[in-house]
């Protein structure tokens, strides 16, 4: 018996969807558990001296703030700011005194080879360490060549995180607004 052409497409599609669904469901718990472990390790790295963190609800007006984790020696703030192509998300560890102790770009989908270097360019990222919310690209922070907009997105993330951690959130509530 000959099958209609769409029969095998439908069978393949249903089989593929069932396979992906099954693998996703089977691995979801392990993935979530690993994510939790790695996230805690990441928070501990970004905020030295803190071992336990609690998720603090953020009630301010900066829509870029994704989460605030309170540790013993400060806070780790996750901030998203519009970059050149898409949102740049940065996790920033800020001490109780308002000093940036660590940062990591969690997500960026900028131009490959240019803006996307904010993910891994340690020379650029290290310039934000020990700043106190006043970092400015072009003045005390050298931007990544050809990626000024992406560099400034990281700058705004860092300064917004410091503002949240020190309670001066009004200073950088425009963190998610890109005006240039």
């Amino acid at each position: 018996m000959t099958r209609r052409p769409w029969f095998w497409s439908a069978v393949a599609l249903a089989g593929a969807a069932a396979l992906l669904l099954a693998v996703t469901l089977l691995t979801a718990d392990i993935t979530r558990q690993r994510a939790r472990q790695q996230h805690l390790a990441l928070l501990q790295t970004l905020l030295p001296g803190s071992t336990e963190f609690t998720l603090v609800p953020y009630t301010g007006s900066d829509h870029g703030i994704r989460s605030v984790h309170q540790g013993q020696t400060g806070q780790v703030v996750e901030v998203s700011v519009q970059g050149y192509v898409d949102e740049v998300t940065v996790l920033v560890g800020v001490s109780s005194e308002g000093e940036v102790l660590g940062l990591m770009v969690l997500s960026a989908h900028e131009t490959p080879g240019l803006g996307n270097r904010v993910l891994s360019d340690t020379d650029f990222l290290c310039q934000f360490l020990h700043t106190t919310g006043q970092a400015q690209v072009g003045e005390d922070v050298m931007p990544i060549t050809g990626a000024t907009v992406s560099s400034r997105a990281v700058e705004r993330c860092v300064n917004a995180a410091v503002a949240v951690a020190t309670g001066t959130g009004d200073v950088t509530t425009e963190a998610t607004v890109w005006e240039e």
Partner: peptide, 24 residues
């Protein structure tokens, strides 16, 4: 269409496995 489904499924399975190893 079957070839497209096979390639897409393979790529997505790879993503799931990478995500399992490195959620970030």
């Amino acid at each position: 269409p079957v070839a497209l489904i096979v390639f897409l499924t393979t790529a997505l399975l790879t993503v799931i496995l990478i995500r399992l190893q490195n959620p970030f």
